[in-house]
Design a binder for these strands. Structure first.
Lengths: 236, 236
DNA sequence: CATGCCTGAAATGAATCCAATCTTGCGTTG
DNA sequence: CAACGCAAGATTGGATTCATTTCAGGCATG
């Protein structure tokens, strides 16, 4: 019953040419193909995509708004390096938002929605199995977004999207285990709860899933001297 | 030649020249000085601020990311006109997030925080009393942001900031009463609860406050023929 | 008289150009 | 030999210029 999803049909036709560059860079960052802290020179990117710096700058500005890159005046753009505090806050925010959204999704989920989610899980599983960790991370984020979409909350979907993106960056920086991206079974249990329209289970499973995710990263404040002094003096 | 604006000295790395235009336009939009749907021509704004279209476009792109303006390809930028569905979703999102944040704030609030909040309420009260409705709306938003700041959640603060901005726009479109911006007594009660470190009260007061806000706007879907056909055929 | 096409003006999209700033490396000097 | 200073190169910040699209008005036509 998606009565003329005007949100995307009319409202957001954000088709500019820089979105291509934006999407490309975003995918590369989230898939850990570009390490945090890497400089992103405008000239170089312009060469890669055969466009002028104008479009590159537009894309970089958009990524900066998403906090995936950091713009330093007169110095250029760098892949963002979230601090541990930011890392903690991102997961705290998700812990506040996503369980409720999962409950909302469970309340209204239809068989077609469940089918879509399960199909999604398959792809995710395949990506993990094939060792395509970059794809796995992005598919995991997509899964969380999918739940918000089922809840019919496009604004919360956007917020969760943003938080998941930042989570991917955080994981690439602070992950302690190699399987930090969502384990399949947690996602499976979540889908089952949503399929049974059990709001309570969905909410609790999402909460514990997020706790689990957080436990996989090292968010302890590093009071001891980090590797490089230069990092400290430049404000990390 | 009035440069000498060292951003890194202040630690504010997000400062470029277009932020001036961004802040200005944002304030004007939130204060309802510019009506939703108004076109924002690049040339005109460039003249106003005596800069080239380059900087204007950067500011407009940032505002578009905040969903305060809508960019239409080859047509230009317009002050956003949130749909009723968006309006409802914004307040639903706030209802999910803000009560929890209020509880967190109540848990950690110190006397100094309370003092700041009360000082804030004074300004808000004065603005309402003086009939400066534009200022009142912005101060009301600032109040909600302040609570998130007390909670020590900078990321949630950003999210709430964004939602409050959109709320201001929504109120300017769909407000039914003239006092739709937060009534002072609701805010006062909230501060009292936070001052007493009562998480439960703070959470519940915030919830009812948001319900109250939502009740002040008309979010009923207009299934009946809206005034002008032209509106429908152009999408919304 | 209404409809459709066509042309010119105006605004946006994007590339190029100039200025300002930072970085790097060499040479000078104590 | 180390440290400071300075100049050349590289990179970003912003303005200008060219191309493309849309919009408005007028003219021709059915």
């Amino acid at each position: 019953m998606l009565k003329a999803n005007d949100d995307r049909a009319t409202g957001n036709v954000t088709s500019a040419r820089w979105t291509q560059i934006y999407d490309d860079l975003k995918a590369a960052i989230l898939a850990h193909a570009i390490a945090p802290g890497t400089k992103l020179p405008e000239d170089e990117l312009g060469d890669v995509y055969s466009v002028s710096r104008t479009l590159v700058r537009a894309a970089l500005q958009a990524l900066a708004h998403d906090r995936l890159v950091q713009l330093e005046p007169n110095r250029g753009a760098f892949v963002a390096k979230p601090t541990k505090r930011e890392a903690r806050e991102v997961f705290e925010a998700r812990a506040i938002i996503e369980p409720k959204v999962a409950a909302m999704a469970a309340a209204v989920a239809k068989p077609a929605d469940i089918k879509l989610l399960r199909k999604h899980l398959d792809e995710e599983h395949k990506a993990i199995h094939d060792g395509r960790q970059g794809d796995a991370i992005m598919l995991s984020a997509r899964f969380h977004e999918g739940i918000a979409e089922i809840a019919g909350q496009s604004i919360l979907t956007e917020i969760i999207q943003s938080l998941c993106s930042r989570s991917a960056l955080i994981i690439s920086l602070y992950s302690r285990r190699s399987d930090t991206f969502c384990e399949s079974h947690a996602h499976h249990a979540l889908v089952d709860a949503i399929a049974k329209n059990s709001e309570k289970d969905a909410s609790e499973l999402m909460t514990s899933h997020l706790v689990d995710l957080l436990s996989g990263i090292d968010v302890s404040e590093n009071l001891a001297p980090p590797r490089k002094l230069s990092e400290i003096l430049r404000g990390q």
